[in-house]
């Protein structure tokens, strides 16, 4: 197979890593639970980009697309449940600051 485009797998992967890193950074550093959720979405998006990229350049084939669709659905469901949890947390702790919600420690 001839590679004509100057945009190759590595570019996709670079984007994906960047997105993943940004997401991870958000998950680890943000104090607001909603922001963390957004970080999680970024990580999911990074994975989706990977899937798509590997389906285009690798030998995943159509499976990559299908997985991406699944991930989109899971991400939507996840976002719904997570937001519900955040709402409940807010109800119980009157905050969504994860630093203050450390009752796991006990």
């Amino acid at each position: 197979m001839e590679v004509q485009s100057s945009i190759g797998l590595s570019h996709f992967l670079f984007i994906s890593v960047t997105l993943f890193s940004l997401g991870l950074f958000a998950v680890v550093t943000r104090k607001n639970a909603v922001m963390i959720l957004m970080g999680v979405e970024l990580i999911l998006n990074a994975s989706m980009i990977n899937f798509v990229a590997f389906s285009r350049f690798g030998n995943l084939g159509v499976n990559g697309h299908i997985m991406t669709l699944f991930v989109i659905v899971v991400a939507a469901a996840e976002a719904a449940i997570a937001l519900a949890i955040v709402l409940n947390i807010y109800k119980n702790f009157t905050t969504v600051n994860v630093d203050e919600i450390n009752s796991l420690k006990d």
Binding site: V27, V28, D99, N102, L104, D106
Partner: peptide, 14 residues
Amino acid sequence: TQTGSVQTYIVYAI
């Protein structure tokens, strides 16, 4: 190490 903060655990995991 057990801060109870999810983010710490995530850091550990990573």
